[in-house]
Design a protein around this nucleic acid. Structure first.
Lengths: 108, 108
DNA sequence: CATTCATATAAGCTGTTGCTTATATATTTT
DNA sequence: AAAATATATAAGCAACAGCTTATATGAATG
């Protein structure tokens, strides 16, 4: 089950554009070292580090240490609270949902 | 098309638990007058008013004036930016998505 | 083991957010 | 039009969020 607090956390965490951009890069690139995320970010290394902590605390990313690098990847369950919550509003976005469904079915 | 700003707005707006509770009540009850939302809220009338403004600005609710009451209802397109964005992460929540799909198909 | 590289933490500053009380604006009722 | 009801706005405040610079930790390398 998903708690209100978890949902709030996920929403707050994704609401910041800089942090969301970090998340999106991780999602796109599969597994990324923090250094690489700092490169190509507008903000400083500590800022990125803080965002990564927030993403991890929200359950949105997981980390794997390899030597002195830490690789981040998206945590599959992280978006769960958001998905679940949206489930309650099916009726309101049914049309868009159907588009999404097509996408998922791989009908190009 | 959905802009980053719109998505940020929707996320920020829903991230506050009090405001999200207001949104959820509107969703559940269909069409609600602001007064009614104030009744049964922990916060003051101005606070509710401010939350309603935020929800409207984010495109999440629409209003209809009737006499001196203003009735709020969920705006169908409001969650669009969020749905669209999640579409990019299909692969990460495919399992949950399938549950959702069942729900939508009305298979109880 | 001293240095370099990768990441995290600390401290402080600034802007934003959500709330309050007080007051203003609309609309209806008497 | 005066009073009552419904909502919005203004102003101020306390808490928080995100950034910075400076420094600490942790791991690899010479």
């Amino acid at each position: 089950m998903t708690t209100t607090t978890q949902l709030t956390n996920v929403l707050k965490t994704l609401a910041d554009p800089t942090r969301r951009a970090v998340f999106e890069r991780i999602a796109r690139e599969g597994e990324v070292a923090a250094t690489w995320l700092v490169q190509g970010s507008k903000v400083s290394q500590p800022a990125v580090s803080q965002h990564l902590r927030a993403l991890r605390d929200a359950g949105l990313v997981a980390e794997r240490r390899e030597g002195r690098h830490i690789h981040y990847r998206v945590a599959p369950k992280g978006l769960g609270p958001l998905i679940d919550w949206l489930g309650h509003y099916q009726t309101f976005w049914q049309e868009r949902f159907e588009n999404l469904e097509k996408l998922l079915k791989g009908s190009e």
